[in-house]
Design a protein around this nucleic acid. Structure first.
Length: 273
DNA sequence: GGACAGGTGCGGT
DNA sequence: ACCGCACCTGTC
């Protein structure tokens, strides 16, 4: 067993299967901060403080049940890594990001976050999301609700720093509701992907991210500029991201999403600084 | 100062 | 269906 639930924290017993830096910095999430003591993470209206100790992690939270789900603690990543290691290309990335886990994030939150992420850098994405939180949510620290976002006009989103994505945000809020999004969970991946791409500000890359991080569909391989660079350094170079994605899904099948995270985290570690 | 960020929408072929 | 280009704005 990976964890035990104590009174006000979750204890992670195996640090080879959970590394908070790997989990939060591998590109799947924006609502976290590094602190002096460790990391804080604040999905939806929840909050947890993650502290590393000698032989364990402690996840301090008022809602352990939520964070057991959120951190995907009941899935064996040991098995996933073993399967992925059959592909030689995965050896170094898994060695480097051994403690990665794919979070189970709120679907609506993932939609809004990744629309903002398009052609953008992480620092600025976090800034925009912070602006939205402090200006819209009543407690200044929860992710804004659908209703709160719906009251905003396009210009407001611009003042939050979202630039030309302001129009995407304004329109997408009038195309869907969190409830309709949730109902898409019943659809097969291909059909669901089409639904997502039909939304304003959602193209192939953002759709794949929502599929992976919100709906936890692992048979998709989001290809951004980093993955494209990685791919073109390992394989005969390709221009089109769609072809790259198809090739990678062909290689990794139902484990594509996991492979993507290890490869992304590894690739980005070189270029960062 | 320009290139680049976790791309998308749009109009023209 | 497949290009090519414009697009906010902070950071290097």
């Amino acid at each position: 067993m990976l964890y035990t639930v104590e009174k006000n924290y979750i204890k992670i017993l195996d640090k080879t299967e959970f590394n908070i830096e790997h989990i939060l910095e591998c590109g799947q999430v924006f609502c976290y901060e590094k602190t002096k003591e460790g990391y804080v993470v604040f999905p939806k209206d929840k909050f947890a403080k993650v502290i590393e100790e000698e032989d364990c992690y402690k996840i301090y939270t008022e809602d352990p049940e939520f964070f057991v789900q959120y951190f995907d603690l009941d899935r064996s990543y040991k098995e996933i890594k073993e399967k992925l290691l059959k592909n030689k290309i995965m050896a170094e990335p898994i060695k480097f990001g051994y403690g990665i886990r794919i979070l189970k994030q709120d679907i609506f939150e993932t939609l809004i976050s990744f629309i903002i992420s398009a052609n953008n850098n992480i620092k600025r994405i976090k800034l925009i999301l912070n602006n939205l939180r402090t200006n819209l949510s009543k407690d200044k620290k929860s992710f804004p609700t659908y209703q709160e976002l719906l009251t905003c006009d396009e210009n407001f989103f611009k003042t939050m720093g979202s630039g030309y994505r302001a129009g995407y945000l304004y329109r997408v809020l009038r195309q869907i509701t969190p409830e309709i999004l949730q109902s898409y969970a019943l659809l097969p991946t291909g059909e669901l992907r089409e639904k997502l791409i039909s939304l304003s500000g959602v193209g192939p890359k953002v759709a794949d991210c929502i599929l992976l991080f919100g709906f936890n569909r692992f048979d998709v391989f989001p290809v951004d500029t980093w993955i494209q660079k990685m791919y073109n350094s390992f394989f005969p170079p390709l221009e089109k991201r769609k072809t790259i994605s198809l090739n990678l899904v062909k290689q990794f099948g139902e484990l594509s999403g996991f492979a993507q995270q290890y490869l992304f985290y590894y690739q980005r570690s070189f270029v960062k600084n």
